[in-house]
Computed example of a mutant assay.
Amino acid sequence: MNDKTELTGMESAPKLLDKHLGNTLRHLRLENGLTIAEVAERAALSRGMLSKIENGLTSPSLEKLEHLANALGVTLSKLFHDYDTPKGGAQYVKHGEGMEVVRRGTKCGHTYHLLAYDQGPKKLFEPFLITLEEQGEIFAPFEHPGTEFIYMLEGRLEYTVGDELYVLEPGDSLTFNAEQPHRPENILQMPIRYLAIIYYDSLDSTTDIEL
Rank of each mutant, 00 (worst) to 15 (best):
E6S: 07
G9N: 13
G9D: 11
A13K: 04
K15L: 14
K15T: 08
K19I: 11
H20C: 03
N23R: 10
L25M: 04
R26D: 15
E31P: 05
A37F: 12
E38P: 06
E41T: 04
E41F: 01
E41Q: 08
A44Y: 09
S46C: 08
K52W: 07
K52R: 15
E54I: 00
E54R: 07
E54F: 00
N55V: 14
G56M: 12
L57G: 07
L57R: 13
S59N: 10
S61I: 12
L62M: 15
K64R: 09
L65E: 13
L65P: 12
L65N: 13
A69V: 14
T75Y: 11
S77E: 10
S77N: 13
D82W: 01
K87F: 14
G89S: 00
Q91F: 00
V102K: 11
V102E: 11
R103Y: 06
T106I: 01
T106S: 09
C108L: 10
G109T: 03
H110Q: 09
Y112M: 00
Y112R: 05
Y117Q: 08
G120K: 06
P127L: 00
F128V: 09
T131D: 07
T131C: 04
L132I: 05
L132R: 02
E134D: 06
E137G: 15
I138H: 10
F139G: 06
P141L: 03
F142C: 11
E143Q: 10
E143F: 06
T147E: 05
E148K: 05
E148P: 05
E148H: 07
M152N: 06
T160P: 08
T160Y: 13
D163T: 00
D163Y: 00
L165T: 14
E169S: 07
E179R: 09
P181E: 06
P181Q: 03
P184T: 01
R193I: 03
L195C: 02
L195D: 01
A196P: 04
I197G: 02
I197T: 13
D201Q: 07
L203S: 10
L203V: 11
T206P: 06
T206F: 02
T206A: 06
T207C: 06
T207P: 14
I209P: 10
E210H: 09
